[in-house]
């Protein structure tokens, strides 16, 4: 099995889809000569040319909207929104248009577009370059939402997103780009809507997304030293949500922690907690714990930033609280 970084895995999925299918093309800011602000598309201009690795002006509404229009005419565009903070600029097109065109047309049209974007704290860019806004988009019927946390998952899920006939908002986490992982020789598409159990355990289930999957795995190792057996599950796709896998894990462990980097209040974790309490109420031995960012914009000063967003120790504290060892 080859080893790829998360960044290379994204690039590999894009490149292989583009080799296979002329309808797949990329549009985004600084993606051509520069190779994207995160370096994801480096080298792709040379292979595919400027028609298919298409630099756009700083113009998110047109970038998102033109990708939607091209997809309505049978293309499979992948639009890169440089930072997910800038999804707010494209929100009208993503939320009012892409998500609803199939519906409003009574099923006449499909919108097979992918909005790839990235975000995440840990490098002190301040309040407008590191938000985690996935909860905004899971609230919109018509959109699918993916948030992959490993090289294998990001490659297999991006492939599925490109070939999905629905608009997909595809979140990547900035701090994960350099992480390495083994991937299958050939791309194995990962179905959208299927969770992954990263680590099996008996005492508590941690349901985590993005960077917090890795933080939760660290916390699980720590907890094991204290004799707590932790299961770590990554939903991988937030919409649709693999409720069955999450519920069955919690029915086994009887305790749950939900962890994401996004602000806790009104976050994705609240929905997961609601699903769990309703479907596994009789199995729960403790209140569901939520781990996420504190309710503030992201600050600049590194010490403040580190204080606002969650880390492994926050997950560990939540694990200990739920098993009554805090």
């Amino acid at each position: 099995m080859p080893e790829l970084t998360y960044r290379e895995a994204v690039r590999d999925a894009l490149s292989q889809a583009m080799r296979q299918d002329d309808g797949v093309f990329l549009m985004g800011e600084d993606i051509a000569e520069m190779g994207g602000s995160m370096g994801v598309t480096q080298g792709m201009l040379e292979e595919f040319g400027k028609e298919r690795v298409r630099n756009t002006p700083i113009s998110e509404m047109a970038l998102a909207g033109a990708a939607i229009g091209a997809s309505m005419q049978g293309m499979r565009p992948v639009a890169e929104i440089m930072y997910e903070d800038f999804l707010t600029l494209a929100a009208e097109q993503v939320v009012n248009q892409a998500a609803k065109i199939r519906y409003m047309s009574g099923g006449q049209l499909t919108v097979p577009v992918v909005f790839r974007t990235q975000g995440g704290a840990g490098w002190s860019p301040g309040a407008q370059h590191a938000q985690q806004l996935e909860a905004w988009f899971v609230h919109i019927p018509g959109l699918k939402v993916v948030f992959a946390s490993t090289p294998e998952d990001v490659r297999g899920l991006l492939w599925s997103a490109i070939y999905d006939d629905n608009p997909v908002v595809f979140f990547e986490h900035r701090t994960l780009y350099p992480i390495k992982g083994n991937v299958p020789q050939e791309i194995e598409p990962i179905p959208i809507g299927r969770a992954r159990v990263h680590r099996e355990g008996e005492d508590v289930t941690v349901i985590a997304t993005g960077r917090l999957v890795h933080e939760s795995l660290k916390a699980a190792e720590e907890a094991e030293r204290d004799g707590i057996s932790v299961e770590v599950v990554d939903p991988r796709t937030l919409q649709p949500l693999d409720e069955e896998s999450l519920v069955s894990s919690v029915k086994k462990t009887n305790r749950a922690v939900v962890a994401h980097e996004a602000v806790t209040r009104m976050g994705f974790g609240a929905e997961v907690a609601a699903v769990l309490q309703y479907q596994a109420f009789d199995w729960l031995d403790a209140p569901i714990e939520r781990v996420g960012a504190k309710f503030s914009p992201l600050p600049f000063a590194p010490v403040m930033e580190a204080f606002v967003v969650p880390h492994a120790e926050d997950v560990l504290t939540a694990i200990k609280r739920t098993v009554g060892k805090a």
Binding site: A62, G65, G69, S71, M72, Q73, G74, Q97
Partner: peptide
């Protein structure tokens, strides 16, 4: 709302 779609459809053509 539909203007960027027209740019995109024309791009596909």
């Amino acid at each position: 709302g539909g203007l960027p779609h027209v740019t995109g459809a024309a791009l596909a053509f």
